[in-house]
Amino acid sequence: MKKFGAISRQYWPTLLLFAFLLASWQAAVTFGNIREYLLPAPLSVWNALWHGDTAWAGHLWTTTLEIIGAFLMAAVVGVALGVAIAWSPVLANALVPFLVFVNTLPKVAIAPLFLIWMGYGIFPNMLMGALIGFFPVVINTAVGLSQVEPDMLDLGRVFNAPKWKIFVKIRIPNALPYILSALKITATAAVVGAIVGEFVASQRGLGYVIVTTQSSMNTSVAFAALVWISVVGLVLYGAVVLLAHLWAPWAEGVD
């Protein structure tokens, strides 16, 4: 673990840039006479976050549930499909072209269909996030399971180790860093999916808040919703990074 001093030395340029951008933004709005509904000042976004009449807790809860559900579904289904592909060439031949086809579909275009099939609710939005985020997990799982040194597999064969044992002891740990790096992509994709789902059909959630501010021209609330979305996204992303640190420390660069 790095010391606090080292961390602050590494990140102060980021913080400085962030503070500078916020200050410039505030200055531009204050002195540039930009109208509030076009670009609200950071301070009014701040006010909307804490003092406005939007009930953030409920919306935040709904969207967070959708994002976590989407992420978990993408992870579980993605890993399962990846294992199936790596396990059996027949399954690989059956699944891969189909999955590539599904992945080339613009998922956003399917969202209205989800509304027709499943109506309003959390689940269709979860499904949208999962649909956008599962593909990298499938591919990385399959690749990670297959990219084992041939000599390593020979070693397994010398001891007549059964296929499942090679899978559990060698292939799966080998695939772990690949899976975790795909999950970082999935973490962001799950956020996109949940919000897209809410745009199309919802009665609650941060995406719903953004859509409603369109008609009321309450732009600062839309910005505040964006802040919440990025907080949820960052926390999820950070959790995956932490998971990678705990589960696959060997895959990290040597310091």
Binding site: E149, D151, M152, D154, P173, W250, A251
Partner: peptide, 9 residues
């Protein structure tokens, strides 16, 4: 073998 092929984890 030529490479040690130890399991990294």
């Amino acid at each position: 073998f030529q490479a040690p092929i130890l399991l990294k984890w």
